[in-house]
Amino acid sequence: MRTFRPTRRWFAVHALVALAISTLGGYFAAESIAQGWVEGALVGLALVGPGIALLLRLPQIGARFDATELHLKNIFRSVVIPRSMIDDVNTDPRVARVSWSTPKGAPRTTTVSAAHVGVTYLFPRSTLAKEHQFLRDVAHWAHHGNAL
């Protein structure tokens, strides 16, 4: 079984985003309440919840594969993908996706949140070696069946 946890840098960036969402939502709600604007307060409060939920979810983010399945704990959901259903693995950490099919043949694409650095492009490709290697290992495992 091979397990992958995001880097500290990944956690730091995502924690800052979650804190920013919650803080800005709370500030907007407080200012709206002070000015008597109920709709604005509701919008601000609506931002606080997702920010806190994201912050609580971050420690759970990860990926692992064993002999038969790929287990992804992503930001919004967790998914288990049988190895035989995987069609392709994008090994670029800036994309980090698994293309697969359901048992009925419907195509699906799932992001590997733990290894995904997103559209920020803040980090040079050379600093993404750990993420890139894990995605290459998943691609090799998916196509050859060897758990590395």
Results as ranks from 00 to 15, higher is better:
98 V>A: 01
82 P>N: 14
95 V>P: 00
8 R>M: 14
82 P>G: 11
87 D>W: 12
57 R>S: 10
137 D>L: 10
105 G>S: 02
55 L>Q: 07
115 A>G: 01
19 L>S: 05
48 V>T: 08
119 V>A: 03
49 G>L: 15
107 P>H: 14
83 R>Y: 06
93 P>N: 09
83 R>F: 12
41 A>H: 04
95 V>F: 10
139 A>G: 00
123 F>I: 12
54 L>T: 14
7 T>M: 05
101 S>W: 00
31 E>M: 10
18 A>L: 07
78 S>K: 07
8 R>F: 07
11 F>R: 09
93 P>C: 13
105 G>F: 04
78 S>P: 01
106 A>S: 06
134 F>L: 01
117 V>Q: 02
133 Q>V: 08
146 N>G: 09
70 L>E: 14
146 N>F: 09
139 A>V: 06
11 F>H: 09
140 H>M: 01
125 R>S: 13
131 E>C: 05
52 I>D: 07
130 K>D: 12
140 H>K: 04
88 D>K: 14
106 A>W: 06
45 L>A: 15
29 A>T: 02
44 G>Q: 06
29 A>I: 05
64 R>S: 15
9 R>P: 00
120 T>A: 15
135 L>F: 08
3 T>L: 15
7 T>W: 11
37 W>Y: 07
50 P>T: 10
21 I>H: 03
111 T>Q: 04
99 S>R: 01
90 N>S: 13
18 A>E: 08
137 D>Q: 12
27 Y>W: 13
122 L>P: 00
127 T>E: 12
85 M>L: 14
124 P>M: 03
97 R>E: 15
13 V>T: 11
5 R>F: 13
19 L>R: 02
14 H>M: 15
48 V>K: 00
66 D>E: 15
75 I>G: 05
124 P>G: 14
124 P>V: 09
116 H>M: 02
123 F>H: 01
128 L>Q: 12
74 N>R: 04
91 T>V: 14
62 G>Y: 06
42 L>C: 06
11 F>C: 05
134 F>R: 02
125 R>W: 12
136 R>M: 11
49 G>W: 15
49 G>F: 15
88 D>F: 13
77 R>A: 15
95 V>C: 02
100 W>G: 00
100 W>H: 11
79 V>A: 10
104 K>C: 01
128 L>V: 00
20 A>K: 00
111 T>D: 03
26 G>Y: 04
10 W>P: 06
69 E>C: 14
123 F>S: 03
35 Q>W: 13
68 T>V: 06
52 I>S: 09
89 V>F: 05
148 L>T: 11
121 Y>W: 09
13 V>I: 15
127 T>K: 02
14 H>V: 07
107 P>R: 13
111 T>N: 05
